[in-house]
Every structure is written in structure tokens, then in C-alpha cells.
């Protein structure tokens, strides 16, 4: 069962995504509400995959999802990270993909799209 870390500052979106991933047979090993907590939990839990919200409040030196992504990729260059974005965040998604994210999903979530993207990344098919 794939082990997933969910990172989003919105509790409701963490719950919605968690419900979808559980239905898809994935295990939620942890949740984080900011970039710094995401880095800490990534090191601690070593998940198979991270879903990482692009826009989150700055905590310490970590300003949002892209900053957290870069730190995670430094820790593990093979990390599988899928960015979570909302409408109108195209430029940030492009920046994240260039920084090592494997794919992205858009809020509000469509179960089919989420499932397809995450399974593709887990199987190693995505870039």
C-alpha cells in the first residue's frame, strides 16, 4: 500500500484529499500544514509520495510549497512530489515542475484525475 504525506494549509482540503486517497487504497502516513512541517515529516516518515500545496504561509525560512519542494529534493533527489494548485497558479506549477515535482493536481479535486496522476507518479511513469 503506497504511503502518502499530505501537505496543505487548509484542513478541509487535507480531509478531502485524504478521503480520496484512502478510497484509492493508499495509506496516509502523515499530514502537514506548512512547508517546514512538510520537510520535517518527509525526513521522519520517508513517504512513497508527497502531495504538496503550492501556496502556503511562510514559516521560518520556508515560504510556501516551492520552497519546501526544493528542500525535499535536496534531502532526496528521487522524492516523488505531486504539487497541489488552485485556479490561476499556472506559473507556480511550472516553477515547481522545473524544481523537481513529478506532476500536479488542481483544487477542487476530481477523484479520477487525482488517482491517475498519483498512480502514474508512483509507478515511475511521470517525468
Amino acid at each position: 500500500m503506497p504511503r502518502v504525506l499530505i501537505v496543505d494549509d487548509a484542513l478541509f482540503m487535507r480531509k478531502v484529499l485524504s478521503d480520496i486517497l484512502k478510497r484509492e487504497g493508499m495509506e496516509i502516513v502523515g499530514e502537514a500544514e506548512n512547508g517546514q512541517a512538510a520537510i520535517d515529516k518527509f525526513k521522519e516518515l520517508k513517504p512513497d509520495l508527497v502531495t504538496l500545496d503550492v501556496v502556503m504561509p511562510k514559516v521560518g525560512e520556508i515560504d510556501g510549497g516551492i520552497s519546501a519542494l526544493k528542500e525535499i529534493m535536496k534531502t532526496d533527489p528521487n522524492a516523488k512530489v505531486v504539487m497541489v494548485s488552485a485556479m490561476g497558479q499556472h506559473a507556480l506549477v511550472v516553477e515547481a515542475i522545473q524544481a523537481g515535482a513529478k506532476d500536479f493536481i488542481v483544487k477542487p479535486f476530481q477523484q479520477a484525475r487525482v488517482s491517475q496522476a498519483l498512480k502514474k507518479v508512483l509507478s515511475g511513469e511521470a517525468a
Binding site: 487548509a10 484542513l11 478541509f12 482540503m13 480531509k15 488552485a86 485556479m87 490561476g88 483544487k107 477542487p108
Partner: peptide, 19 residues
């Protein structure tokens, strides 16, 4: 959880207007 759900829903509406 209530506050978070309302925030996300309203954020979608406002974001759509601004897009």
C-alpha cells in the same frame, strides 16, 4: 474544519472572478 471548508469554497468563487 468548518472554517477551512468555507474558506476553500469562497476562495474558489473569488479566484474564478479574478481569473
Amino acid at each position: 474544519l468548518f472554517q477551512s471548508s468555507i474558506k476553500e469554497a469562497l476562495n474558489i468563487i473569488v479566484g474564478a472572478y479574478m481569473m
